Amino acid sequence: MKFWLLTYLGAAIAEIAGCFAFWAWLRQGQSILWLIPGMASLALFAWLLTLVDAEHAGRTYAAYGGVYIASALVWLWAVEGVRPDRWDLIGVCICLVGAGVILFGPRSPVI
């Protein structure tokens, strides 16, 4: 598997887990101590995105969005027990194609 894909997948897991820690604290009444690993996870997420070999941060983040959406649907199914429906799957396919265009599209040289 390509390094950029592993990096994006790791970043997605870290971001979703970090955000879920806040969700659990605020929406599910969990201890405020959930925020400690949540913040560490969000810091890991930010660091991982810096490892993607792209010329500009904005493109890295934009392309990551498609991977994040796919990962969020996996989380929905694996952690929350809700199976994605066909509209979720169609939407994620569109997003992944868009992410690929952003990350791998041919670029004109900057003058």
Rank of each mutant, 00 (worst) to 15 (best):
42 L>R: 04
7 T>G: 02
95 C>P: 00
84 P>V: 03
47 W>V: 15
4 W>E: 08
103 L>P: 00
24 A>G: 05
38 G>Y: 02
20 F>D: 13
96 L>N: 09
90 I>K: 13
23 W>G: 03
110 V>R: 13
105 G>R: 08
31 S>A: 12
37 P>A: 05
53 D>I: 05
111 I>F: 14
28 Q>H: 07
76 L>P: 00
11 A>T: 00
21 A>H: 01
69 I>C: 10
87 W>M: 12
12 A>P: 11
5 L>Y: 05
108 S>A: 12
100 G>K: 03
82 V>L: 09
76 L>W: 13
42 L>Y: 08
109 P>H: 15
16 I>H: 07
63 A>I: 04
101 V>M: 04
39 M>R: 01
89 L>G: 06
22 F>I: 14
83 R>S: 14
58 G>E: 14
51 L>V: 08
76 L>M: 15
52 V>N: 00
84 P>M: 03
30 Q>L: 07
69 I>E: 07
111 I>P: 13
83 R>F: 07
95 C>R: 01
5 L>T: 10
49 L>Q: 03
41 S>I: 09
50 T>Y: 06
78 A>I: 12
69 I>W: 15
23 W>A: 07
45 F>I: 02
17 A>L: 14
45 F>D: 00
77 W>Y: 06
8 Y>S: 10
41 S>G: 14
93 C>M: 12
90 I>H: 08
74 V>H: 05
77 W>T: 11
79 V>N: 11
17 A>F: 09
94 I>D: 03
110 V>L: 11
